[in-house]
């Protein structure tokens, strides 16, 4: 997504440069001092600080305290043991698997859409993706239960045909099931993210390669794949974090039977707290932030690589 913005920005910059050779003309008239120019964003930043940064910091700070408020790391030690360690492993495995599947399918679908000359198909897929990417949560879980749950419509059809998937190791209420359900919002998200970079590819580099006489295989080997790899990787990280933080779908689908970090956290908030675990929830929260931050830094790094390519 951001890589496409990049293309747009640089293109606009060029146009702007041609249109207004004298930059002084487009300078804002009032106040050129630098501190002045940030004033308009203060309400926004204050709001964000109050309702996002303060809560997040308080979680991290509390994670390092025991019930009496003194410094300790015992919350973290407990958070990497037993069911909590298991929940981190489950969550990471689930998000990774779901992310990989959605990335592969999403890229193929995005390529298919971009290659299609049929305007209706294009409009249908891109608007459909925008709609489905915003699906999720509880309704999604229930509609999958109705489909391939214990008594779902498809399960019934298959059982009548002599193949009950639940007798062959399949369960919707498992990590595998969650991986499938998550595809419902991850694939459209991937398509949405990948369409702009692929379209950008079409416009600028395809012409250049073909006028230099490249074949398709050569184009993909030397231009297409190197150019698309950073946005694909970046998109994968977005999908990973999206799947990692998903709480509602997992909670509604498994009712907490699979240990996943967000669900353990939820249970701790809701008051299922044992004595001596006062700030364990905060430690799990801090752990989640840490994992997503790592993903975020990777994303930024890959994006920087990508924008270098696209400049």
């Amino acid at each position: 997504m951001a890589s496409s913005t990049n293309v747009g920005e640089s293109a606009q910059g060029r146009i702007g440069g041609v249109d207004s050779p004298n930059p002084a003309l487009v300078r804002p008239r009032r106040g050129r001092r630098s501190w002045h120019s940030g004033i308009g964003t203060i309400p926004f930043l204050v709001y964000l600080g109050l309702f996002l940064v303060v809560p997040a910091i308080s979680v991290v700070v509390t994670a390092f305290q025991n019930g009496a408020g003194t410094f300790t790391v015992s919350n973290f030690i407990e958070a990497v043991h037993g069911v909590y360690l298991k929940s981190f492993i489950n969550s990471i495995q689930l998000s990774f698997a779901a992310g990989v599947v959605a990335t592969v399918v999403g890229v193929l679908a995005a390529l298919a859409v971009c290659a299609s000359s049929n305007r209706i198909v294009k409009a249908l897929v891109s608007s459909g993706s925008a709609v489905f990417a915003n699906t999720g949560g509880v309704p999604l879980a229930f509609s999958f239960i109705a489909t391939v749950g214990n008594f779902g419509v498809i399960t019934k059809l298959l059982t009548d045909a002599g193949f009950n998937p639940y007798d062959h190791g399949f369960s919707l209420y498992s990590v595998l099931g969650l991986t499938i359900v998550y595809q419902y919002f991850l694939i459209p998200l991937m398509v949405l993210i990948m369409i702009p970079p692929i379209e950008a590819l079409r416009k600028e580099w395809v012409d250049a390669s073909s006028s230099l006489g490249a074949t398709r295989a050569q184009f993909w080997r030397w231009v297409g794949i190197p150019l698309l790899a950073p946005p694909i990787l970046a998109a994968f990280i977005v999908l990973f974090t999206d799947a990692f933080a998903a709480y509602a779908t997992a909670e509604a689908l498994t009712s907490g039977t699979i240990a996943l970090v967000p669900i353990q956290r939820g249970a701790l908030i809701s008051g299922n707290v044992l004595a001596g675990q006062t700030n364990l929830g905060e430690a799990l929260g801090a752990g989640m932030i840490a994992i997503v931050l790592v993903a975020g830094f990777l994303y930024a790094y890959v994006q920087r690589k990508a924008s270098k390519w696209l400049r």
């Binding site: 920005e9 303060v54 997040a56 509390t62 709480y247 905060e282 989640m288």
Partner: peptide
């Protein structure tokens, strides 16, 4: 522009479950 765009993505970094706990404590 891009800095603020990244700032707007911050809520993705901090999962809503975590924000909720922060809200209840702070």
């Amino acid at each position: 522009k891009r800095v603020f765009e990244s700032i707007s993505l911050l809520p993705l970094v901090i999962p809503s479950v975590v924000v909720t706990l922060g809200v209840t404590t702070s």
